[in-house]
Design a protein around this nucleic acid. Structure first.
Lengths: 130, 130
DNA sequence: GTCTACTGTATGCTTACTCTATACAGTGAA
DNA sequence: TTCACTGTATAGAGTAAGCATACAGTAGAC
C-alpha cells in the first residue's frame, strides 16, 4: 500500500457505509487522487481505520471492481485499475441522471442554497482534485 | 384537487418510492409547478395512479408536511403550503451537500458525461420549470 | 342531528438490505 | 512447508420499505 486514501464516513447517516466508501474512492479515481497501479489498503486495514467491519469494505471493493476501478484478487492486495474509457452513456441513463440532478438542485434551493453557490460547487467539482 | 401533478416513479430502482415522490413534489414546489393553496390528490388517488400502496404516499405527504411544503390534516384533503423563506443553511449542511454534489459529479464523469452536459443540466435545473 | 363517503392515521406483517461474526481459501515470502 | 497476510462465503441480527387492514376525523346530503 502506497499512501492511504483519505476517506471519511458518517456512521449514522442515511447513506449506507459501503456506498459512501464506493462514492469516495470513485471520486478519488476520477479526480486523479488515486492513479492506476496504486495499491489500496487491505479490507481489514481500511475497516479498522473507519471503525467498521471488513466485510463492509470488501463489499465496497467488489462493487468498485465490477465498475472497473479496482483489481481485486483473493490473497493479493487490491490495485487501482488502468483507466478505461467510459462508454457513451445511453439516452435512458442520461434521462435518469438528469432527473436526479434536477431533484437535487431543487432540494438545495429549498434548503436556502443560492444558484451561485450551486454553480460554484459544480465548477469546483468539475475542476479536478480539491 | 385542481390538476394532478405529473409524477413518475421507478418501481424497482435503488431509490425508495416514497422518496421519489417527495423529491418530485418538492421539485415542483420549488420550480413553481405547484403553487400555495393548490389541493393535492388524496393518498389513495395518487397511489392508484402510481400503482403503489396508499400508505407509501401518506408517508411521502407526511415527510413533505414536516419539511413545510404541504398542509396535511386527517379527514381533509392536502394543500400546498404558503412558501416560507428557507433558513440560511448551516456550515455543516453546506459541507455535507458539497461532498454529495462532488461525488455525484464524479459518478457522472465516470459514466461518460461531459462537463458541458453537466453544466447544461445544472443551468436547466436552475432555470425553473422544464 | 346523523348518515355516508370520503379524508388521513396507526399497527403489524413480509421482504429486502445493511452490517457483522465467523469460518474458509488463495498468495507469497521466510 | 509454514506462516502471516490477503480476499471470499455464509449465516445471523437489526433496520427500513412497502403493503394489508382496521381505525378515526371531516364535511356535505338529507
Amino acid at each position: 500500500m502506497n499512501g492511504a486514501p483519505q476517506i471519511r464516513i458518517v456512521l449514522d447517516g442515511p447513506t449506507p457505509i459501503y456506498r459512501q466508501v464506493v462514492d469516495q474512492i470513485r471520486t478519488l479515481c476520477v479526480d486523479g487522487g488515486l492513479k492506476a497501479g496504486h495499491s489500496m489498503p487491505s479490507v481489514r486495514q481500511l475497516a479498522a481505520n473507519l471503525g467498521v467491519h471488513f466485510n463492509t469494505i470488501a463489499e465496497a471493493y467488489r462493487t468498485l471492481a465490477v465498475e472497473g476501478w479496482l483489481e481485486v484478487k483473493q490473497g493479493r492486495s487490491v490495485f487501482v485499475s488502468e483507466r478505461r474509457e467510459p462508454r457513451q452513456p445511453t439516452r435512458a441513463a442520461a434521462a435518469q441522471h438528469s432527473s436526479r440532478l434536477r431533484h437535487q438542485v431543487a432540494e438545495l434551493r429549498a434548503n436556502g442554497f443560492s444558484p451561485e453557490w450551486i454553480r460554484h460547487e459544480i465548477e469546483s467539482a468539475l475542476g479536478g482534485p480539491e
